[in-house]
Amino acid sequence: MRGRVLGVDARTGDGLVAGDDGRRYTFQPADWASRGEPAIGIEVDFDADDRRALSIYPIPVATPPVAAQPASPLRNDRNKYVAAVIAFLLGSLGIHRFYLGRTGSGIAMLVLTCTVVGLLITGPWAFIDMIRYLIMSDEEFAARYRRD
């Protein structure tokens, strides 16, 4: 039968169990068949003999599932606003790309700036980068431009 421990005398170890049948059963320390001591409120399984609970075992309690922890925000040592200002001021030279760790495209922008046609390409490219940085969420920016 199953039940719940209602009380335990700290001096003697005698206790009382409320059975699922609505009746109360007494027990002594010798009736406790598990390691540890009985505690008030725990669910138990026991054999009933008239008004006595025998061979009392605590019912293992399943731990509730742990709620998923929210993902910790990504850490980034780069700031999207700093990158946007650099793109605005020195964008055609590709300095903002070097700041973000994109050295390949930074070198390409720097080399293209040496020609008039390349300058016409890198100017709008840097302006578009600046706009992208400003409208990008902080999480997306951190994920895209983090250092590994």
Rank of each mutant, 00 (worst) to 15 (best):
P29C: 09
Y99M: 09
S34V: 12
I86K: 00
D20R: 12
A30P: 03
R23G: 14
A143R: 13
T103G: 09
V111K: 01
V116G: 09
V82D: 04
A48H: 02
I128Y: 15
G41D: 01
I59V: 15
Y99G: 10
S72Q: 15
A108K: 08
L110Y: 07
L119Y: 14
A48L: 04
D129R: 06
S55D: 14
T103W: 14
A84W: 04
G7S: 14
A84T: 06
R11L: 10
V61Y: 03
F46K: 07
L110H: 03
L16Q: 01
D31Q: 08
G106V: 04
R78W: 08
Y145Q: 00
S137W: 02
R4K: 15
Y57G: 00
A126N: 13
T26G: 12
M1A: 15
R78A: 13
N76I: 13
F141M: 06
D138L: 01
Y133D: 03
Y145L: 00
A18R: 15
A108W: 01
R97H: 08
A87D: 03
A48Q: 01
G7Y: 01
D50S: 11
E140Y: 04
R2E: 15
T113R: 10
E140A: 08
A126W: 08
V44P: 07
N79V: 10
R51M: 13
P70H: 03
L89Y: 02
L100F: 10
G15L: 05
A10W: 00
A18H: 10
A108V: 15
H96P: 05
V17L: 02
L134Q: 12
C114F: 15
T63F: 04
G123K: 08
I86Q: 05
A48V: 10
D9M: 00
I121Q: 08
F88I: 03
G41W: 02
I107M: 01
R51I: 13
D21A: 00
A87I: 02
A30Y: 07
Y25H: 00
Y57T: 05
P58W: 06
T122N: 09
T115W: 04
V44E: 06
R35K: 06
P73N: 10
V111R: 01
T12R: 06
T103D: 09
I107H: 02
H96A: 05
A126M: 06
G13S: 10
L6K: 11
A62S: 12
G22F: 08
A83L: 10
F127G: 15
R146C: 12
D31H: 12
M136H: 07
N76Q: 10
H96S: 05
R2W: 07
P38N: 11
D14V: 14
S92G: 11
L16A: 03
R2K: 14
N79M: 01
I95C: 05
G7L: 04
Y25M: 00
D49L: 11
T12G: 02
L112Q: 07
T63E: 02
